[in-house]
């Protein structure tokens, strides 16, 4: 018996790779393909590819299909070669440039000025539109301020503020948005270490659900900002599709801010949806 290869190589070749598998598309249209291959060193590698399959249906008229199949080119088109084709696709993407958005941001920047210019102009629809916009914004502001206005009324319990806050005026109680010394910004976290901070943050986490898919972190910062300093905002997104899953977590620095936000915003109508706001359940311990 003459063997051309070493027994070691033979063994390696015999070691079979697991067959590649393809699963899906699942409910979200995701196809998962798992492949196994060897790299240069001969190690077995596992490669998982996830692709989203989108089905596009196109309906074609039967007569149009028949025309397409049956008609021959005539006139100048008959002698036209592929090289000197008169048809070309533009190399770069042409966007349908939305111009309403820009207008809106400008309006926001100079609300009052815009209203005045609208009044000065003769276009009635511009006045009405601008006025309606202004009134709506005023109303929203007032609602938020009303929620926020309660911040000033009841003083914070002094014992929670601790000894550091007793001698100084309570932060943020007088003027909303006033400057707060850094030592007071984190009244509860002053003496604790990193671990305690982490724990506290979880405790002060608020869960918001029934959000619309378009809501971004900035929107939530705007909505929850008036209740107190926020440490972190997290909008849950689908890992594969990148779409919002309709809920988010807002971590307040202070627990009372979180509670107040819950009392004010639970059942609050936002973006045509009624929000459901509650304390987030503590994350299960990881081992």
């Amino acid at each position: 018996m003459v063997s051309t290869s070493k027994w070691g190589d033979l063994l390696e070749e015999e070691e079979e790779l697991p067959p590649s598998t393809t699963t899906g598309p699942d409910a979200k249209g995701i196809v998962t393909k798992v492949e196994y291959y060897r790299n240069e060193k001969g190690e077995v590698m596992k490669k998982t590819t996830k692709t989203r399959v989108v089905k596009i249906e196109k309906k074609v008229y039967k007569v149009a299909q028949e025309r397409r199949a049956g008609w021959r080119k005539f006139g100048e088109a008959a002698t036209e070669r592929a090289a000197d084709s008169v048809t070309s696709q533009t190399p770069d993407e042409v966007q349908l440039e939305r111009i309403q958005r820009q207008k809106q941001t400008q309006e926001e920047k100079s609300k009052a000025a815009d209203f005045q210019t609208a009044m000065a102009g003769s276009d009635k629809s511009a006045i009405v539109g601008s006025l309606r916009d202004m009134l709506y914004k005023k109303r929203m502001e007032r609602q938020l301020l009303a929620a926020k206005g309660l911040i000033a009324a009841p003083e914070r319990p002094p014992d929670e503020d601790g000894p550091s806050g007793s001698g100084l005026p309570p932060a943020g109680s007088g003027k909303p948005g006033g400057w707060v010394p850094p030592s007071l910004r984190n009244r509860l976290g002053g003496e604790g270490g990193g671990e305690v901070m982490q724990k506290r943050r979880d405790e002060n986490s608020v869960r918001v659900s029934n959000l619309s898919e378009d809501v971004t972190e900035e929107d939530l910062a705007e909505l929850f900002g008036p209740f107190g300093p926020i440490q972190r905002i997290f909008v849950a997104k689908d890992r594969e599709t990148g779409e919002s899953r309709g809920f988010a977590f807002i971590n307040f620095i202070h627990r009372e801010d979180a509670l107040r936000a819950i009392s004010k915003l639970d059942g609050y109508g936002y973006d045509n949806l009624i929000l459901s706001v509650s304390m987030a359940a503590p994350r299960p311990e990881r081992n």
Partner: peptide, 18 residues
Amino acid sequence: SKINLWWADNGVRAGSFD
């Protein structure tokens, strides 16, 4: 003075009426 006929899906010229 030309009339051109095109396929609307890919813009290929189908003919010209001369």
